[in-house]
Simulated scan of single mutants.
Amino acid sequence: MTPARRSLLKLLAAAPVATAPLAVPPARASAAASAEIPADPTSGIVKPLPPELFTLRGTNAETRLSAFRDTGFHTPTDRFFVRNHTSTPRIDPDTWGLTVWGSGLRGGPVRFTLADLRALPAVSRDVAIECAGNGRSYFTSQQGETVAGTAWTLGAIGVARWRGARLADVLRRAGIGSHAVDVLPRGLDGEYVTAGVNLGRVRRPLPVAKALDDVIVAYEMNGAPLPPDHGFPARLVVPSWIGIASIKWLGDIEVGDRPLHSPWNTDYYRLFGPGQPPEGSAPLTRQTIKSAFDLDPGATFAPRRHQHLTGRSWSGRAPVVRVEVSTDGGAHWRPAHLKDPARRGSWVRWSVPWQPGRGGSTELLARATDAAGTTQPARTPHNTQGYLFDAVVRVPVTIG
């Protein structure tokens, strides 16, 4: 346990979690708002989770990499990974409302209904949502290092077309002032309890500069209303940033005239470990660079038969402009064909032909370079919570 975690848990154990003033009670999910029953009661996830598409990880569901192979640029909603701290709430859209409040407004709190959001100018954006711990398991399996957290491979990511209102328009309609510093969105999922301490509902602040830039309050995903597991009736979509910033099931947004804090930017989602200060790094923002093949580790290929390897690469810093692939464990590299134009906040699909030799085993590797000049390294510096793994992943396969 890090020093920051120890101090935070002591603080939270001694005092209640901060909430909105009594004049602005937080919105609540209705337990009887929907007849939908979780497909997997142990996970609390509503949608079906067939094993050929997902790997269950507690309250989370990771998309199997092979499930991407026959998809297009957008991840089908039924294959999109699920990251939940507790379980998916069922919310009545007719009684739901989003309350914007706080010292950073020029006036009092403002409540938006779903109809109010839909009445604002709508935008559609192709954006990747990716957990900060995506790739975490490779710290252990590939680098031999111990880390805490869900043992994701590389399937805690998906790209969807999100439609909604600009968060900037919502904040301006609510009367955000020039003195505002941070906004703190909070979800309507259940309060998160860890180590016997109630951390409250999931919430994480955004600086005003980001909130007024490219963030949207989404109410549609891939041309349909948000499904329950992905934030119905409204969620944030924060391009290029770690997934925790894209709060699901929005209930309220505090606008502060000073920096705002929560466990999700103090104890979690910072880098702790070698080379970091005792309180950890600055709160994590942008995602890192990664590549993944559209196949599961251990796949088998027939010898001397032409294959078409496919995959996708992405970077939170800048669009991916080059991908190289090795089919002999990194001894030789060749460029992959990019199937999509370079885009910020999303991924690019790629392909490369391959004719395996005689039977045996090998490792497939893919490494990306983005427009900022960042190339995936051979190793990611260790951090105790296993965030932002960006090293080239070695994928073992069998020929025979």
Rank of each mutant, 00 (worst) to 15 (best):
L295T: 10
S124E: 14
G158E: 06
D92K: 06
S66Q: 05
E36S: 13
V183D: 01
W350D: 00
T99A: 14
L388H: 12
A156C: 08
P93K: 10
R106A: 15
S361F: 12
E254A: 10
L105C: 11
R258G: 08
N134F: 01
V217N: 07
W314N: 03
G149S: 02
T194C: 07
G196W: 02
L9M: 02
L56G: 05
Q385H: 13
R163H: 06
S351K: 01
P283A: 10
A27N: 03
A318Q: 12
I399G: 02
T75P: 13
L212A: 04
T99P: 09
L184N: 01
S262G: 04
R204H: 11
L212E: 14
L388W: 06
T113P: 01
A292R: 12
T140G: 08
V197K: 13
R312K: 14
F139L: 03
W264F: 15
R349C: 01
G44Q: 02
G298N: 08
G196D: 11
H74Q: 10
R358N: 12
D92T: 06
T374I: 12
A195N: 12
G108Y: 12
V100I: 15
G256Y: 09
H337N: 01
A15L: 02
N265P: 12
N383L: 14
H85V: 06
I216F: 08
A128I: 15
A336I: 04
D126V: 09
R173F: 07
L120H: 08
W350G: 00
Q385C: 00
A27H: 09
D78V: 04
P227Q: 13
R136V: 02
S246K: 13
I253S: 06
W350I: 00
Q376A: 03
L154Y: 02
G190R: 14
K210E: 15
N383D: 15
P283G: 06
D340N: 01
I244V: 15
G177L: 11
D78K: 04
F80L: 15
S346P: 00
A27C: 05
R28C: 07
D126I: 13
G149P: 08
P377W: 09
G330M: 07
Q307P: 04
A211W: 09
K248P: 03
P274L: 08
R6N: 05
G58V: 02
D267W: 12
K47V: 01
G158A: 11
T375F: 02
F139D: 05
E145K: 15
L206S: 07
A156I: 02
T194Q: 15
V100D: 10
P341Q: 04
H74C: 14
F293G: 12
L120T: 05
N265T: 10
S346V: 03
G256M: 07
F389W: 09
A292T: 13
T380Y: 11
Y268P: 00
D92L: 08
T77W: 01
A368I: 01
